[in-house]
Amino acid sequence: MAIKFERVSFQYRGIDEKGYLALADINLSIAAKGEFITLIGETGSGKSTLAQHMNALLTPTEGRVHVFGVKLTSDKKKNRRQRLNPIRQRVGLVFQFPEYQLFEETVLKDIIFGPKNFGVGQDEAVERAKKMIKVVGLDESYLERSPFNLSGGEKKRVSIAGILAMEPEILILDEPTSGLDPMGRNALLEVFHNIHEQLGKTVVIITHDMNTVYEYAKRVLVLREGALVYDGDPSGLFSRKHVEDWNLELPEILRIQRALEERFGIKLDKSPRSRKELIEALGEVVG
């Protein structure tokens, strides 16, 4: 296992009193290849805190996290003696507002900053930038532009290209599509899907969008008040009991499927996972 959590808890320390328990007794394993995971939970449930443990930006206050063979515990001195830089290259983390972290005068310089920081030469870094700007759906002309004159969606793509250029083995994205328009969101999700399918990389996406969960994820993690309450496939997640107990929003596809079933008794043989599949499946039954 590339990443393994063993009985991990994390407490934020406030100046005042006892602090705040953000993660409670988490056990979890993530493989280095072939996973497509979505991590969901209400605001404040601990999603970002969990993600930051995956590349040692945060270390547990109880329990152990193993990341590519490096063990992290509450012993800060021991943690510091380990080489954490390679972990941060191998597990790439895109923050929730990556656009705020653009700072160079051109998009090119911003993208090559990460790889160069991890010892990649100038020429190779530029090559990667040219490749990754296309991977995120922009063309090469963007490389010479100032990151500050880009729209929100474009900035987001540039910052994701910067992480991809570091060639991480595992890619973790904290709400990568929030604020993007529908086509922009779909295009970016296709990018992640392709990275996963073609390069076999493990992708972990933190999201509030249940449609993303239902259409793309192979595995879903649900956090509630810091505890991992579900670790399984998306089809098992949206049972009536879970939806009620955890106040989940139904993916649109399921919402329509269930509404049509309730109202007209229309039952589909398949479980459509995309808009297109739903329309095809309904067309066969209704048409």
């Binding site: 328009d181 529908p182 086509m183 922009g184 329509i256 808009r275 329309i279 309904l282 209704v286």
Partner: peptide
């Protein structure tokens, strides 16, 4: 760059 609400997309498809 927008899309139909899914029920309307279904309606359109049918």
């Amino acid at each position: 760059n927008l899309e139909l609400l899914l029920p309307l997309e279904v309606l359109h498809g049918l």
